[in-house]
Design a binder for these strands. Structure first.
Lengths: 167, 167
DNA sequence: TATTGTTATACTCTATAACTATA
DNA sequence: TATAGTTATAGAGTATAACAATA
């Protein structure tokens, strides 16, 4: 086997041209690079077509899995400020995808639910995203993608430890 | 073993309180949640102390691994616009961490290199980040973290396919 | 014609502060 | 006192457009 000067080194930067060096093992850096790809997958798969921001899609899906949840719980889940959630919810409700109903037990709070249209949009987007991830992330086997999701989930779960530390 | 009603379900949102539902297997969502943790690790480990933005740190490390590289190559590597790179390079050069020297062969371009101080800062930050990732991501074994970095690298490498598709 | 790099500009997202209403 | 939600406001980061110099 002669060496192949044309094939990029395995610590090359995604766009090629540069080497990653020590960054190869820095999770934060690899995450940022992977995010570039994954964000584009979202945009190509459904974002551009539906005009739905990544965050709006996530809101739909979280409300779908947690019917009756409140704005405050979504802000905590996504680690964003409450004025920010107010803004995003305003957008998805004005699009007729989520509806707010006043809570009977707590008159400050609103319960959130998908509308029929929101349900349809959420389903369609999820299918499109899944297909696009399948297609673009073809370098990863189905098993590898499952492991990746699992490991990322574990990383996300480390948030509790961090928040304890910061308190 | 009786069931434990207090332990959160395994598809709970990182902050608890909500369920992820179908998002459990959406790589893009899991990535965003993991990013929350990893960004905070960076801030706590070195960002706050050094006043160095995540991107500035990345620039230092890429220039370190690729002495003499140009602004344009960094913009491509990070998938950001050239005016944006100009801004970030202005910051790190004004801090005395990176120096620009005019190219002899191409009078439009500048070659970038770490200063002695930049080298020291890059080293210190990398060590601190590594230790913090070790500490906070303790739910993942050393092996799991290595696999995670590897899989994220593979995802990043899928960018070439995407860019071909968009062309 | 294409590329390197910069300046000018505007937009999007985000947070903090301040507030109302309710618990 | 603390929490749910909103409005007002400002800051940070990003991109596009337009340009100059060079290839």
């Amino acid at each position: 086997m002669a060496d192949e000067p044309e094939s990029p080194p395995d610590d090359a930067t995604p766009a090629g041209g540069l080497l990653e060096g020590q960054l190869k093992t820095v999770i934060g850096y690899q995450m940022a690079q992977a995010t570039v790809v994954v964000d584009r997958i979202y945009e190509n798969a459904t974002g551009r077509e539906t005009g739905l921001h990544r965050i709006e899609y996530t809101l739909l899906m979280l409300v779908r899995a947690n019917p009756g949840c409140t704005a405050a719980s979504l802000a905590r889940a996504l680690a964003v400020s409450t004025p920010n959630i107010t803004l995003w919810l305003e957008r998805v409700t004005s699009k007729g995808l989520i509806e707010r109903t006043p809570s009977a037990s707590d008159r400050r709070a609103n319960h959130l639910r998908l509308t029929a249209r929101g349900e349809k949009v959420a389903q369609g987007a999820t299918r499109a995203i899944g297909e696009a991830e399948d297609a673009v992330l073809a370098r990863l086997s189905v098993g590898e993608r499952a492991i990746l999701a699992e490991l990322l989930h574990k990383v996300g779960a480390c948030r509790s430890g961090l928040e304890a530390e910061e308190r």
